[in-house]
Every structure is written in structure tokens, then in C-alpha cells.
Design a protein around this nucleic acid. Structure first.
Lengths: 286, 286
DNA sequence: GAACCTGCAATGGTTGAACCAATAGTCGTG
DNA sequence: CACGACTATTGGTTCAACCATTGCAGGTTC
């Protein structure tokens, strides 16, 4: 499917349009099963789920992706051509593309050489998902900070086993950058960004993308959280980092984990107390 | 914002429509900053990001959600009314709703008493996100199984500390259900579902929603993975479960963790070898 | 009075044709 | 050869319908 098509204008597409095969098939499947009287014997009907047209389209494209017939960087045919191929209107097709776009699977680009491109797979949707849950209050700050400590502990332990010299260098470079930032009196959020990057490098050193993504999501939400409670100095970070890297470099996993845990716990106590103070000041909602 | 409006038909809305304020404002903001010649002194221009109309709308609604002016269960005004309030066409508004819908924030319901309802916040988007990454090959099966062991180990340890009697009961009930399923010769996938539910109950016992969600996502992807490699008997599960619950109930965290780790490692070796055999049989793709 | 039908109106789902806006390439001019 | 206007392509948005589903009010039958 998804064959490339030649040049088309709004007008030419009309001629090429198929007689909306998709929509018709759906309607045929939508047999009326609601007569529940006198159900004979052990016949069981499944609840029918009437897929909306754009969902079916999104599913088809997802399938092409997971079967590797479409791969990162590929360009899908233009909307007008796709709409014709699927036999739906451009609006409906766009809803499907929209849905794939904010799942992080596609990137839509305007202009002459534009179109829908298959993205390199990223964890964007996961990050956004966790952020939403946090900002909706389904995750409390304490949950966030706790999970962060738990997961980072493991990450450190695994990373300690697997880190390459390059990883260690990257960590050291990050510490150096942090020191420079302090010396140059870079603004707080800039410093915080460097500190958070440290954890990303650690996650990468686990060589496990799942750990990377989970960490990335936690870091992202932490960043929002920190911004929400406002600017703070935390002078312990650098000292902890230096102790940490010493343990880490020599492969003393237990010591490295302990150092990181201690550091994060202290940080979390700090954040949470600030948050409480802030809530009191503002009059807690509810 | 998002004030409820009275009854509207396709016709009445037209009269109420505002002169698309949103779109106009965006265009005004889109000042032309692309002249990069002779940048004076240290003036730095940020790359402008031109928000598409539907993104701005989605952001506004997200804000209402995070500020709790919209809460779970609330119903938004009908599409036609919302479109008028935002000053955009119904299509554009729908793309915004679509985006919020597959972020898991809204639920769209047809019919007379239908509309866009604010959903109870769930980790759906996160689950889907991880599933996509797996089916796109950004996560290898080994990564998945490894991360699963790592994260579950922690979850067990934490759960062991915090589990209430109810949690223990739920775990025991699950084991009993699994035993019954075996005795009744329930189909394999039904049994697998029960076994996976065990891990969900464990996650819940950590009392940390972040851990629950991460676990949920991993379980979901594992489920897909298992389906992909096909039906398999694994007769060790129940024996392991019985040993596990004994340790767990008496609070012997280390023993419980060890039991679970051992069990999962064995399972994973099993899965991965099956997978390899399957790949060989099919002629590995690339 | 209760159960059942029946039609209406509200609401999301889809359509199709049009125009706008960004963008990369092309072609002509200096 | 370099620059600038032109043009075709492509996503973004609009508008005005119509369709499909669903809850409810009101009537009908027993």
C-alpha cells in the first residue's frame, strides 16, 4: 500500500478518488447484533467496536511501520493522494495523520518538498504522557521523587557495570561544565539543565533504551516540577558528583549507588519542603 | 473560558461565530525574523516556532486541565460551540480534540448526551508510546526483558515493605485463579493474562503510581511480545509463585526479590530462545 | 400504571471544494 | 555566476453540508 503517486492538484485528486471503499466496508461489518432476545444455546456475541475511519487509517499506517515497509526518514505520499488511496476525505485523513503525529511516529512538514515523514522513533509520547499525568495530579510530587530515586539506583548499578570509557568521559565533562557554569555564574536554570543532563548520560550508559526512556520521562517531569517551585541554590551537587564519579570510575557500584541515593534523597527533601512552604504561602488549593 | 453554550444547530453556530481571532493573532506574532545578515552586537534571536492553530487550542485546554478548571468527568461544550469560541473552523477544532483524545485526556462520545468528556487520568499514552517503540524496533526484546527484571526487582522490594493485607490477599487470589485455570485447561492466553495480572497487583502494592505505570507499560509490551512468539507452556510459574508468596507474606524482601528475579530470568531465556528459533525458521529479516 | 414504540433533536463523524501559507526548485536577468 | 522573482507542491484552515448514533419526551397499547 501507500504507493507513491504522481503530481496532483486539488483538482486532479478528485478524478483519482476511489469510491470510499473503507467507509463502506465498515458499514457492512456493522451488522445489527443488538437483538438479545432468545439467544440460542452457547452462541456468544462479542461487543462490536465500530472503528472510526481515521482510526482504521492510523492502524494501517502503524502496521506498515511495524512491518518495516515504512522506515524512519521515509516520506508518505501527500495528503491528497493518501486520502484518495484510502478513499476518505482529506479531513478524515488528516485526523489520522494528526493522531500518528502526536504519537511521535510522523513529522508533518509544509512546503514544496514537505509531507509526512516517518520519524526516528523517540520516547516523546511517553514523556508527554507522564507530564500530563503529573500536571493532572495523578502523580504526586512525592511519588515522582521516590520513583526517581528507585529507578536511578538501578540505572547507576547497571551503568557502573557497563559504562565505557566514553561514558565516563562524558560524565566527567558534564561535571566540568557544571563547575564552569558555577564559576561563570550562569543562571540557575542553565545550571539545573547541566545537572539533569548528568542523569541522562548515566541512563545512556545502561545501554538499555527502556531505562533511558523511563529516566528521560522522569527527568522531564522533574524539570517542570523544579520550575514550578522556583529557583533554588543547591551547593551540594558538585561535591556529591565528584565523590560519585570516583566510585563510579573504579567500579564500586555499591558506593556509587549509595552516594547517588543519598544525594537524591537530600535533594528531594529540599524540594518537597520548598513545595510545602509554597503551598502554605499560596493557600493550598482545596 | 470554555463557557457552556445553549443549544446550537449547524445553522445557529454560523451566526455566533467570532471573526477567527486566534488565527489572526498568530499571524501577527509571526514577525519576520529571518534576516540574519549583520546581526548587531550580542542580540540573539530565538528560532520562532509557529504554533499551528490546533496546537494552540490543545494547549489552552491542557492548561484548563492542569489548573483544575476542568476536571475528570466534566463535559466540554459541543464541537460547534467550541469552534465558535476559539474562532476556528470545526475541522481545526477537531484536530485539537483528536490530539487530546489520543493523549488520553479526553473521551469523545457520540449521540444526544455525547460530547468531549475529561477522562480520569490514565497511563494509556505511555503504554501506547512504549508499544510503538517496541514494534518500531527501537527497543529490542532483550532490552525489554532486562528492563522488566530490573524494574520488577525494585517493585517487589518496595511492595514487600508496603503491601497491605488486602494486597497479599489479591496476590493469593490471583495464584488460586491461575491454579484453577490450569485445572480447567483454560487456553494459554487466558492463563498468561492471569500471570501478568499478578505483576500488576504487585505494582499496585508499591503505592506509587509511577511504578504502576511503568510496570503496566512493560507488561503490555511483554504481552504483545508473547503473542508474537506464539503459545507456550511454562509449567514453572505456579511453583515459583507459591515460593514467592511465602517469602513475600513474611516480609523476607531479599528472598522474594531473588525468587522473582530467578523466575523472570528463566522465563526470559525461554522467550528469547524461542524468538531466536522463530527468526531462524522464518529467515531473519535483515 | 407499566412496558413499549416512535420520532425528534443534539452531537460527533465525514465529506468535498476551495483558498491560504510556507517552501524548494527553476529560470531569467544583471 | 549570483541574485531575485516566479511557480509548483504541499500542509493548514475554512465553510457548508449531510450522515450516524444516541438519549429523551411523548404517545400508545396492554
Amino acid at each position: 500500500m501507500v504507493k507513491p503517486m504522481g503530481h496532483m492538484t486539488d483538482a486532479t485528486v478528485k478524478r483519482a478518488a476511489l469510491p470510499r471503499a473503507t467507509a463502506r466496508r465498515r458499514d457492512e461489518l456493522r451488522a445489527d447484533l443488538r437483538d438479545t432476545s432468545r439467544a440460542p444455546g452457547r452462541v456468544e456475541f462479542r461487543r462490536i467496536k465500530t472503528l472510526r475511519a481515521f482510526e482504521e487509517i492510523a492502524d494501517q499506517i502503524r502496521k506498515e511501520l511495524s512491518d518495516r515497509r515504512l522506515r524512519a526518514g521515509d516520506r508518505l505520499p501527500p495528503e491528497r493522494a493518501l486520502a484518495a488511496q484510502f478513499g476518505v476525505s482529506r479531513n478524515t485523513l488528516r485526523e489520522a495523520l494528526r493522531s500518528l503525529e502526536n504519537a511521535g511516529l510522523l513529522r508533518l512538514q509544509k512546503g514544496a518538498a514537505g509531507g509526512a515523514f516517518v520519524r526516528e522513533s523517540t520516547g516523546d509520547a511517553i514523556v508527554t504522557g507522564l507530564r500530563d499525568m503529573f500536571s493532572l495530579g495523578a502523580i504526586a510530587p512525592e511519588h515522582l521523587t521516590e520513583a526517581r530515586v528507585l529507578i536511578e539506583s538501578i540505572a547507576v548499578r547497571v551503568a557502573c557495570e557497563r559504562a565505557t570509557p566514553d561514558d565516563v568521559d562524558a560524565l566527567k565533562a558534564n561535571i566540568a561544565a557544571a563547575e564552569r557554569a558555577v564559576a561563570d555564574k550562569i543562571d540557575f536554570y542553565g545550571q539545573a539543565a547541566i545537572h539533569l543532563e548528568f542523569h541522562r548520560i548515566l541512563a545512556r550508559a545502561t545501554k538499555n533504551p527502556v531505562m533511558e526512556i523511563v529516566m528521560e520521562a522522569l527527568i522531564d517531569v522533574m524539570q517542570h516540577f523544579i520550575r514550578a517551585i522556583g529557583q533554588q541554590r543547591n551547593p551540594w551537587v558538585l561535591r556529591s558528583r565528584r565523590r560519585f564519579i570516583r566510585h563510579f570510575e573504579t567500579g564500586e557500584a555499591d558506593a556509587a549507588v549509595a552516594e547517588m541515593e543519598q544525594h537524591l534523597e537530600r535533594l528531594n527533601r529540599h524540594y518537597l519542603s520548598l513545595l510545602k512552604a509554597k503551598d502554605r504561602a499560596e493557600g493550598v488549593v482545596e
